[in-house]
Design a protein around this nucleic acid. Structure first.
Lengths: 361, 361
DNA sequence: TTGAAAGCGATACCAA
DNA sequence: TTGGTATCGCTTTCAA
């Protein structure tokens, strides 16, 4: 049914190679012949080289795979992720690459890995994927370049990553978190809660008796570590801190999580979160209870999405668009120098109205 | 270098087919053998079947292509588009498909078509692509299913689309626009401007002497037609209406466009736009000039994105998430009944604070 | 349950 | 400039 190169070649009376050249190397044949071939192709309903066949032969696909969060539809709800993607898309577009978005549902590790295995791409960008080790190893086995921002070890490593293909583009989550928490601790808060997403796979949203080291998701782990650092320095031991798991990085989960910190006799006076989206949910919870952010309870986010400004949220700003863009560029033009494959981007503490002195009651 | 099926087969001492089965049809061989094969593969650094080779052979890729707006990075800035994508992603994810985002820069038609030709996908979703006819024909030639929401003819056709593979998921833009404009016309406005994106390819943002039929982008064309319908019915002829082109569907373009309606002696008392994003820009322009929306100048959007509510913008709501989701489902499970391949979704007039009586001055 | 053989559709090298 | 030839890596009957 579908016409192929051969069909066209036969019709025009030339060889397959010539037809192939007509599409892929216009300079290799006379304009006249090329025109004739293209016309014949059109008439026969030949739409051009089969993409799979072409990339099989060429060993190149011109598209980069994006492993983005547990689940695409949640990622699209997070302005930070969207902005990141925008940067990545722009870099890809400039080099005429497409973006293959690969869903990685957490409940289906098997299927997720299968998707990574099957992805027809030249490189991968791994962004906020919990428990991603399996995926990373698979990618390594495929011998494809990867950029990630999730691996703290990668960020720290003085030496080039062992796999020649591995790059880091991200921030120093722990240090940034430490700065943010120091700001809060400076207000004298001692009853503190932390809302962290994907802290654990078991159970739902609610308090968990874990240390930062136990957390399943490296980014939440690093940020939580930073929070602990700062509070310990201020004389608040980890055991006094209430760690609350949020099942997903969505606003409603932040709201639910906050209930566990607010609806108790020794109500927390400060709630730190691992993302702005969660923090907005926490603010929702405060509102439900008639509590005033920054006075009754201090709240912080992470990322600095546009909504954070509207909400007056104190947060830690990290570059989103640039991060995506740099990731894309690194993937598409891998730098020779291994050091250039490790980009730790700057962060900024943004103090707004949701943080203030601990209530004296 | 890279291990292949053959490598593994040789190492284990079985045939290629058996190794292939180990990956693609686990039930076709003994568990013991399969385990042995997988172990050998791991040791040899074989990451599983080459995706291109596999899809070449199978004739299936398990991913759907998305032709989205002129330029991905602009699309990611439009909340409506992001929400649409979210719906699409969700549908894809459920059926274990990936999404291939294909950039279609307007300045590079050639390259865009090339990208469509090259896309390794099983189906296409065309969304807000100006001048997409070339792309559509190409897709048709490839014999792949397409869903679009941009083609008014498709929406109206009583009969099943001629191409068996073609579907429509969208709204009746003209009718919706008519309802919106009738609301504005009811307030007695007679000095009216319309800001339409991609009205023309030539020149920048500014007034153009065109009729709705001339517009390059079908969606803007349909909406503009609807506006004209309503104003003509109210006794305002098309010649009295100022049509302004916006180069892109971004806020700043709306702001620039509005200047042409506001900075003149016979200032427009109503500005209708083809999207909320543009309308927000128009509101920016009003603010710059100390004008009050709904009193000095009435402004309307289209889509009803979340920001529209915050801004108190009067607009026409159309489903975004659902639209993406339904598109995805239609592509992944094409309905037998051709009538079911044409889904015209409902719209709602949302009256807020940016529309009011024409000032009497 | 396993293997042999025949493509899937195209590209690239090397001659002519 | 054009054509022949050898793959690219895998899946899939069909037969053993």
């Amino acid at each position: 049914m579908a016409a192929t190169l051969q069909t066209v070649a036969d019709a025009v009376g030339v060889s397959r190679s010539t037809v192939s050249n007509a599409y892929s190397r216009p300079d290799q044949l006379s304009l006249e012949l090329r025109t004739r071939i293209l016309a014949a192709a059109e008439k026969l309903g030949y739409a051009g080289p089969n993409p799979s066949a072409r990339s099989l032969r060429r060993g190149k696909v011109d598209s980069i795979g994006v492993l983005l969060t547990a689940n695409l539809s949640i990622a699209f709800r997070d302005p930070y992720a969207v902005s990141f993607l925008r940067g990545l898309a722009e870099a890809a577009e400039e080099r005429r690459n497409s973006l293959l978005l690969i869903p990685m549902p957490r409940h289906d590790m098997e299927g997720s890995l299968e998707a990574v295995r099957n992805a027809a791409v030249d490189a991968f960008c791994v962004y906020c994927v919990p428990n991603w080790t399996g995926a990373l190893e698979l990618i390594a086995a495929r011998g494809l370049p990867v950029v990630s921002g999730d691996d703290p070890q990668l960020m720290r490593s003085e030496l080039p990553p062992n796999t020649g293909m591995l790059g880091f583009v991200g921030i120093d989550d722990r240090a940034a978190a430490r700065t943010l928490a120091a700001h809060v601790a400076g207000f004298g808060h001692r009853r503190v809660a932390i809302v962290a997403h994907w802290a654990t796979d078991h159970g739902g949203t609610g308090p968990v008796g874990l240390t930062p080291e136990d957390l399943r998701y490296s980014v939440s782990g690093e940020r939580t570590r930073g929070y602990r650092d700062a509070f310990e320095a201020a004389g608040v031991p980890w055991n006094d801190i209430l760690l609350i798991n949020a099942v997903e990085n969505v606003r409603a989960a932040g709201q639910d999580a906050a209930a566990h910190a607010l609806d108790r006799l020794d109500r927390s006076t400060a709630i730190l979160t691992t993302s702005d989206v969660l923090a907005l949910g926490v603010l929702d919870a405060l509102k439900d209870r008639g509590l005033q952010p920054g006075r009754d309870v201090s709240v912080t986010g992470f990322d600095d999405i546009p909504e954070a400004e509207l909400a007056g949220l104190t947060t830690m700003r990290q570059p989103s668009y640039e991060r995506g863009r740099i990731s894309g560029e690194m993937l598409l033009d891998p730098p020779e120098d291994p050091q250039a494959r490790r980009r730790v981007l700057p962060t900024t503490l943004v103090v707004r109205k949701t943080t203030g002195p601990a209530p004296t009651s």
